[in-house]
Amino acid sequence: MTSLSLAPWSEQGLDLLHRQNTAESTEHLGGPETPEQVRRRHERYLALTDGRMFLIVLDGQVVGSIGYWTREWEGEQVYETGYAILPEYRGRGLAAGALRLCAEEAGRQGSRRWLHAFPSVRHDASNAVCRTAGFELVGECAFEYPPGNPLRSNNWRLELPESARTTAGAPAPR
């Protein structure tokens, strides 16, 4: 039996980001980053205060990354999510499992109603992850990621539990 979990982002994440920074893994994200860009991304993940980044851990091995952060979307404050699984671990349902765990965490910790994902319309695997994790397809949209790289995306969303949010932004009393 395998054990899938999320661990807080740590220094271990820098090596993971370098391993994920391949042409294959970044095909739908504007291509590989420079080593300096990878280091800056890692530092942003460590300093994130409007969400959280995680290492995806399978049986004690780091196999990917996932997180959520606040963004404005169509005039509303929502959470956005992003995820990546190392190539040798793909095709096992790990991204969808990690996405469900991340959504649970966002619901517990956050104050936003929706968790959105914006995979490229051409990224079949990432769209399948959203569908499998229980997200609803809202439709296609124009998106830019990374900045300066326009792409056509699908807008997937998942409603987070109401009990986990308040209008003030603090978790509801339990």
Rank of each mutant, 00 (worst) to 15 (best):
Asp124Met: 15
Tyr79Ala: 07
Ala103Pro: 02
Ser5Phe: 08
Val138Gly: 01
Arg122Leu: 15
Tyr79Thr: 02
Asn21Glu: 10
Gly67Ala: 03
Gln20Asn: 11
Ala7Phe: 10
Val38Asp: 07
Val57Leu: 13
Glu74Leu: 13
His123Ala: 08
Leu6Cys: 07
Ala117Asn: 06
Ser3Thr: 05
Ala117Gly: 11
Val121Glu: 05
Gly169Trp: 14
Leu55Cys: 07
Gln61Val: 11
Leu17Asn: 03
Glu33Ser: 13
Asp124Gly: 07
Glu159Tyr: 14
Glu33Ile: 14
Val121Asp: 08
Gly110Lys: 02
Cys141Leu: 09
Trp156Ala: 02
Ala84Pro: 03
Tyr45Asn: 06
Glu24Ile: 12
Val121Gly: 03
Gln37Ser: 12
Glu88Thr: 05
Arg52Met: 13
Ser120Thr: 03
Pro171Asn: 09
Arg152Lys: 15
Ile85Asp: 01
Ala168Ser: 14
Gly30Tyr: 07
Pro161Ser: 08
Met53Ala: 11
Gly93Leu: 04
Asn155Glu: 12
Gly110Trp: 02
Met53Phe: 15
Leu115Cys: 04
Gln61Tyr: 08
Glu76His: 12
Pro8Phe: 10
Arg90Leu: 06
Glu36Asn: 08
Leu137His: 09
Arg157Ser: 02
Thr22Asp: 12
Ala103Cys: 08
Gly134Phe: 09
Ser153Arg: 11
Tyr89Leu: 07
Thr49Met: 15
Gly64Arg: 05
Arg113Val: 06
Trp156Ser: 02
Arg108Phe: 14
Ala172Glu: 09
Ala170Gly: 09
Arg52Tyr: 12
Ala47Trp: 12
Leu29Phe: 13
Ser120Ala: 11
Glu72Gly: 02
Leu58Cys: 12
Val129Gln: 08
Thr22Pro: 08
Arg157Val: 01
Leu115Thr: 06
Ala96Met: 06
Val38Lys: 00
Ala103Asp: 00
Phe54Gly: 00
Asp124Ile: 15
Cys102His: 07
Leu115Ile: 12
Trp114Asp: 00
Leu94Trp: 08
Gly51Trp: 04
Ala168Tyr: 14
Asp50Glu: 12
Leu99Ile: 02
Gly75Asn: 05
Asn154Cys: 13
Ser120Val: 05
Ala7Gly: 04
Ala84Ile: 07
Trp9Lys: 02
Gln20Ser: 13
Tyr79Trp: 06
His123Ser: 06
Glu80Gln: 10
Arg92Thr: 04
Ile66Thr: 05
Gln20Ile: 12
Met1Pro: 13
Trp114Ala: 09
Pro150Trp: 09
Leu6Trp: 03
Thr22Asn: 11
Ala106Thr: 05
Phe135Val: 01
Ser126His: 07
Gly64Val: 00
Gly64Glu: 00
Glu76Lys: 15
Tyr145Ala: 03
Arg44Gly: 04
Arg112Ile: 10
Glu11Tyr: 01
Pro146Tyr: 03
Thr34Leu: 12
Gln20Cys: 15
Ala47Ile: 11
Gly139Pro: 00
Glu144Asp: 07
Glu72Met: 13
Tyr83Lys: 08
Ala172His: 15
Phe135Asp: 00
Arg157Gly: 01
Glu33Gln: 15
Ala170Tyr: 15
Gly110Glu: 01
Arg19Cys: 14
Thr70Met: 14
Gly148Trp: 07
Glu88Trp: 06
